[in-house]
Amino acid sequence: MLLIPCPNCGPRDETEFHYGGQAHVAYPENPAELTDREWAEYLFYRDNTKGAFAERWLHSTGCRQWFNMLRDTVTYDIQAVYPMGQPRPDKENTATGTTAPTVTTPVSPEGAIK
């Protein structure tokens, strides 16, 4: 079982989280102009990286906040944890895999926005 360091709650069991797929998949600027193929690629095509992979996670039984995580798909090393909307941290800084996860400021309180 993975021990995932939630940026709000600290390390928790993987069973408390939900996986949100690949991170940093941008919504197309103008979806109406896309061909069917491009739209299908946006919807269904994801990377299948061997090594460091940026993905989204939701701490569903804890603080119910989304965050991004850089995880090695081979070793399962969690290399970084960073808020939604932030660019993927530089690979060079996290390549060792043994560095402590970057615990950053709490994510924005989406729930409070009217």
Partner: peptide, 9 residues
């Protein structure tokens, strides 16, 4: 008592 559930919850 007020319990913390999330950053804004």
């Amino acid at each position: 008592a007020v319990l913390w559930l999330g950053p804004a919850e």
